[in-house]
Amino acid sequence: MRVAVLQFPGSNCDRDVVRAFGVTLGLDTALWWHEDPELPDGTDLVVLPGGFSYGDYLRCGAIAAHAAAMGAVRRFAASGGTVLGICNGFQILCEARLLPGALVRNVGLDFVCKDVTVRVDGHCNRLTARLPYGSRWTMPVAHMEGNFRVDADELATLEARGQIVLRYVDPAAGERGNGANPNGALSDAAAVCNEAGNVIGMMPHPERATTASLGSEDGRALLAGLVESVTRSK
């Protein structure tokens, strides 16, 4: 099992992601510089970490979506490889059209940095396939543009296919609403996958919730579930 963490100028969660997969989960994990057009040999999982790639110029993720390495990410995804985008990585995957929709400015116009609780609402993807349906997980978000938007027809399609795989819920009741949604995302979407379920984007940061000393180990459970799905898909 080999993990490649794609690093752009302005990525700032890259080392946390390397630590989460490499140290916490003990996997063979390496950074992959965005100018390298070749996927590192033997890669089973590509992760696009959070940050401010290219200073978020133009639109978040817009310039990174055209980086040299993204051609290899496209081919990897097209051949069934697993790709996870976290925060800015999610924005990049949307800009690259590997995921539907786009992420726009939070409704409150504030940078939101706090713990959120998300609920598993879709199973047909490699991030949540191994987790109990309806289970709830707590980890931080930290973003200015996490407001998931897509047109009404496509939203209906995403809902029907179960492509909204994690939703923001109230931590106590586990229900939607009640101010649980930190950014105004449609359908309370915290994570979305492509139709095949092998490309997933999420706004919360599982790599920031990997040990009790960080306040939560829920992120570790999510990433471990992803790794198990990837292993089974091989």
Binding site: V104, R105, N106, V107, G108, L109, N147, R149, D151, A152, G184
Partner: peptide, 14 residues
């Protein structure tokens, strides 16, 4: 410009 059917939080705040 943001599409008419897309929420524009910046425009709304302005």
């Amino acid at each position: 410009l943001p599409r008419p059917d897309i929420l524009d939080p910046q425009g709304r705040a302005v």
